[in-house]
Write a protein that binds this DNA or RNA. Sequence first.
RNA 1: GAUCCCGUAGCUCAGCCGGUAGAGCAUUUGACUUUUAAUCAAAGGGUCACAGGUUCGAAUCCUGUCGGGAUCACCA
Length: 501
Amino acid sequence: MSELKNDQELRREEELELLEQAGVNAYPYSFNKTHDAINILNNYKDEAPEEFASVAVAGRIMSIRRMGKASFFHISDQTGKIQVYLKKDELPEFYENLKLLDIGDIIGIEGYGFRTKTGEVSVHAKSVALLCKSLRSLPVVKEEIDEQGNKIVYDAFADKELRYRRRYVDLIVNPEVKKTFFKRSKIISFMRNYFEAQGWLEVETPILQPIYGGASARPFITHHNALDIPLYLRIADELYLKRLIVGGFEGVFEISKNFRNEGMDKTHNPEFTAMEIYVAYKDYNWMMEMTEDLISNLAFTINGTHEVEYDGHNISLQKPFRRAKMFDLFKEYTGLDLKGKNRVELIAAAKSINVEVEANASSMKILDEIFGAKVEHHLIQPTFVIDYPLEMSPLAKKHRNEDGLVERFELFVCGKELANAFSELNDPRDQRQRLEEQALNRAAGDEEAMILDEDFLYALEVGMPPTAGLGIGIDRLVMMLTGETSIRDVLFFPQMRPEKK
RNA sequence: GAUCCCGUAGCUCAGCCGGUAGAGCAUUUGACUUUUAAUCAAAGGGUCACAGGUUCGAAUCCUGUCGGGAUCACCA
């Protein structure tokens, strides 16, 4: 970054030199930490202080209050903030060096737990060790607890650009950010455990793919030098996971970073995390039950309740979720029966309810537009939208009872798509035909139509058992369970345009 | 890609009907051995995002560029 240093940074370099001249190693090798801040804060008892007669804590200095011959620092570790009390009499060698410490430095304290006159559980220092001198100044955020117990934050580090570009600083000074990412980690490990408990196998499939597929999206393209071929960063892992079902695994899942070369906004980042799972001998009805069980248990485990407040809505993730056929939803929210209508009729229908569509839009596109404009935002409580038109879903199996439809569901919560699942198409003849249609669309200029993958078709010809597949957008799920409305706030390092000098 | 808003000290922000840059916190010096937005006294700190233009004079007005945010479009 900037090579120009401000007065505070110059001062820190000077302090570092002075410390080293005083014989202090500003970057030592280890510290024997025995307690987390939260452990002392939660368990210290006035009637049994001997339980914390000897503690060693470590963390970053977040505030300093020097009072002449005694000082109070707050240090922050992974679990929270704790106050330490430092007295000149008891730190004869180090007390002078305390002047050379700053907010942002990392220190280790050995001492004992006690409660101050004003009631705060703290650590009384018997020795201090500098563990890392910080050469950059941190934003100074101050907090006050008012009489009602509400936290008031002064001078918050709020600049979104800086928070995303320097997430490490954001994590240091905005502790609630850490909470979001602890939750994210718990959500993923809950899922992993849930699937593994069923005996399903976590797998890894290629990120670099010679033919991309499994979704409709534009890819990132790269190049392999030794083979001298283009490779694509995966937009989905579906076709590889299905190959593994062909290979004889009966349940496989992958938590996968996918990459799509498209716009960025509050719910889209060019790389994002999806979870896809395929289970042999099952259909989409079974998958719906599995999905609602997974999500309602997940919500309860993460938040201790099935209720979630998101974007101003109170949502209950208690199962079972509502199930609604797509064309019934059209009827419900537009009053129109769109089933079996041809393109011309659909254009007229769209016009009649003031949905704008391009003159040359396909039937699918028109249905999609109407769904987006008139239906989606009504789906606040978790809703499985089921039975989609065949043309919208080239990898889904034809509906067992209804012509022109496939066995597919998407789960909507708060008007947003969270999951997508099918009874997977395993008839190789039908699959070939549908991918050939995609190829035609592609030739006609649809950049997002799927590419025909002969090896995938070969695998289906070898034979895939009946299979149910599900994909869940992990970032959106994390957003919902943490109440964040921007995907950037659930990614450590959201994509940003590089800074130019 | 379109539209609107924003960019001033390390952080949060004020100044914007043009007249040489302000506050609080942070930093430095001094006082203070249970403070907690510690307090008290003093001091230092800025290419006002960048580049042009208008003007005697621009942080302020105009144009462009860069970066960010929001909305829309695109995107399952």
